[in-house]
């Protein structure tokens, strides 16, 4: 799940920003290309692609800094929905 989520999230970001290179662990906010519009797109993408609604308490920068942290968020949300 997590690998698959990483791939999907990475593909979404690189489709939007083809010039940017980054690892799954890297802080994408430090790279400077994430503006408020793209942040909203990221939230919407995760909610649609993984069929989840991210609750307010999970909507903080710490969960969106890197591809792998977003994949962890997805894993938590989807397991919470199942369990």
């Amino acid at each position: 799940m997590s690998n698959d989520a990483c791939t999907q999230i990475r593909t979404f970001i690189t489709t939007k920003f083809p010039d940017v290179t980054f690892s799954d662990e890297e802080d994408i906010f430090a790279l400077g290309f994430v503006n408020s519009l793209f942040a909203m797109e990221l939230v919407m993408f995760i909610e649609k692609a993984f069929g989840t609604r991210i609750p307010n308490e999970e909507l903080h920068l710490g969960n969106f800094r890197s591809v792998s942290l977003m994949a962890d968020l997805v894993a938590r949300q989807t397991s919470a929905a199942v369990g």
Partner: peptide, 17 residues
């Protein structure tokens, strides 16, 4: 209303959209 800090930007963006 809604999250604070970084994610508060998504509250604004969402409404403006």
């Amino acid at each position: 209303l809604g999250p604070q800090g970084w994610a508060a930007g998504t509250v604004m963006t969402n409404a403006l959209d």
